[in-house]
């Protein structure tokens, strides 16, 4: 156990150090991609608390990503709310309320029924975003026209990219570290073990006194909050929020990132985010039919390495260690 913990800790520290160096060593475009990936980390971590730890596959997490983005854009446009911490809390609160309502209905079902229900809720939200034009901006979405205050500090004097690549980058990195540590604590807690038990054998878990529907709901709400906070962070990077973030393809991307990195390992989805973002950019710039390649990649992963890249890396590590 200590070995695994120290291995995880070592991996984490190396990753943080590399990420902190990115704005100084990488070309601006790659800093942008890394920043986007960072904003997606809470999204996949949240998604995986529900999928990897509780065993519920959601195809509607785009809903919560868009919810965080729209909450941020709406409050900034209509209430000139500029403090990012308040915007993040507001996004978390909106996800808590919506997650409680949607989750209450969805967790009554499991497997394909749960997946289809979440997909349906995501698509309902997508339609609402398009139809409620006065609030949501319809097809056009909402633009974020000014920069938020970070810990009360005003960086509006900086050009947009300088703002994103310096103070905002480190702010997002800090938030992501805090959320990742918190998620690790949650999945390693008594509650986390109970979630794993529900995933493994829900009938047995219930026979041992665990209220499985309630615990699935807790997991759903935590997952929604994480995803929504990711959305709040992403909104300032895109500066423009549109209904596409609630569309099923976005939800599918979240699933893909998680499967790519590996849902059985806590750090798997984080690896998945970075690999997906960089790979997509690389493949999109070389081949028009990039979705075919991603489809083929997903197929190969599911067949040969169902635990994703993280499992592949662990296999390679064990192979060389044993050799």
């Amino acid at each position: 156990m200590k070995k695994i913990l120290s291995g995880n800790l070592f991996f984490t520290l190396i990753l943080i150090a590399l990420l902190a160096l990115v704005p100084y060593i990488a070309p601006p475009f790659y800093v942008y991609l890394t920043l986007t990936s960072l904003a997606y980390i809470p999204v996949v971590i949240g998604f995986n608390i529900l999928f990897g730890y509780t065993g519920l596959l959601s195809f509607g997490h785009g809903l919560f990503l868009a919810l965080g983005m729209y909450t941020t854009a709406f409050l900034m446009r209509n209430y000139t709310m500029e403090n990012l911490e308040v915007l993040i809390l507001a996004s978390a609160l909106s996800a808590f309320i919506v997650g409680l309502g949607v989750g209450y209905i969805c967790v009554k079902y499991t497997r394909i029924y749960f997946a289809l229900l979440t997909l349906a809720f995501g698509m309902v939200f997508y339609t609402l975003l398009i139809k409620f034009t006065p609030i949501t901006g319809g097809d056009e979405g909402l633009r974020i026209t000014f920069k938020p205050l970070l810990l009360g500090l005003d960086f509006r004097y900086l050009p947009h990219l300088d703002f994103l690549f310096q103070p905002y980058y480190y702010y997002v990195l800090g938030i992501v570290i805090i959320l990742t540590v918190l998620a690790y604590i949650i999945v390693s807690s008594h509650f986390g073990l109970s979630l794993k038990a529900i995933k493994e054998n829900s009938e047995k878990a219930e026979a041992l006194g665990i209220n499985i529907k309630r615990f699935r709901l807790y997991s759903f709400v935590i997952s929604a909050i994480y995803t929504s906070i990711g959305g709040a962070l992403l909104a300032h990077i895109t500066s423009h929020v549109t209904p596409i973030f609630s569309y099923w393809t976005t939800s599918g991307e979240i699933v893909f990132m998680t499967l790519l990195g590996g849902f059985t390992n806590f750090f798997g989805p984080i690896i998945g985010v970075f690999v997906y973002t960089l790979l997509r950019d690389f493949i999109m710039s070389t081949i028009i039919y990039w979705r075919i390649l991603f489809g083929a990649a997903l197929l190969l992963i599911i067949i040969f390495v169902p635990g994703g890249i993280s499992e592949g890396l662990i296999r390679i590590y064990k192979h060389f260690k044993g050799a």
Partner: peptide, 11 residues
């Protein structure tokens, strides 16, 4: 009755 403890490591 510890199932709802979110913060303490079960290990």
């Amino acid at each position: 009755g510890k199932s709802k403890n979110f913060l303490k490591s079960y290990q």
